[in-house]
Design a protein around this nucleic acid. Structure first.
Lengths: 111, 111
DNA sequence: GGTATATGTAAGCAGATTCTTACGCGTTGT
DNA sequence: ACAACGCGTAAGAATCTGCTTACATATACC
């Protein structure tokens, strides 16, 4: 499962919020939800498989912590789209400016 | 539908990538996919309802463009989790440093 | 060793998603 | 006016998801 798919479910986003403040055990996390504990466990598994969370076993507990790199990767994708869009807007602006100058909007810049 | 849910589907993310480089008609977008044109249309509707895309009707075409603010909002959430996590790491580091100094790890800072 | 605790896994079910095909509706061009 | 075009909407099928209950597994405690 990829990061965006993992973050698509509200419950899983809530889990990320819980874990981002500190490492937590499965039980602690489950206590914050109305759904059954196995249900939460399945969300945790999904988040781990997406690389968003990391598990660490200590005795009979499992402590989940955030793997911030995964979030950073998703953030990069978002940022890349924004950059491309801003570039597109800039191109458009230049085209309009060129058009206002009377010339036909040249595709390759005005020589 | 919220932004993360909208971006959860790979096809929809691909649409965002297509539209981020320039405004595109529904037909142009659909041509990039193997699924049927109505299928793509439904994805477009979902993205619009999530605020990720904006439609503009010109004649019988519909031109879709990116609404970058929606992506920024999602990016902010991601960043917030990362910040919280880094803060948590910093706290942990300080606790360990205090412990190494011989004192019991005081919850409220060492006076 | 036996019991309690913390948690994952299995199986199954209801409802949501994502497709498909068929059709409808507004625009454009003749 | 009417045919072609671009695109959305409707309805239904197939699949996926998110949940549940029941069970398995492993560590801790006595």
């Amino acid at each position: 499962m990829d990061v965006f798919e993992a973050l698509g479910a509200p419950h899983r986003r809530r889990i990320v919020e819980l874990v981002s403040s500190e490492e937590r055990t499965a039980g602690e996390i489950a206590a914050h939800f109305d759904i059954s504990r196995p249900g939460v466990s399945q969300h945790l598994t999904a988040l781990v498989s997406a690389g968003v969370l990391i598990v660490r076993r200590t005795g009979r507990e499992r402590r989940y912590s955030l793997h911030a790199d995964a979030l950073a990767e998703a953030g990069s994708w978002l940022e890349a789209q924004r950059v491309r869009w801003n570039d597109a807007l800039d191109r458009l602006e230049r085209e309009i400016a060129a058009e206002d100058l009377g010339a036909a909007p040249d595709q390759r810049g005005t020589p």
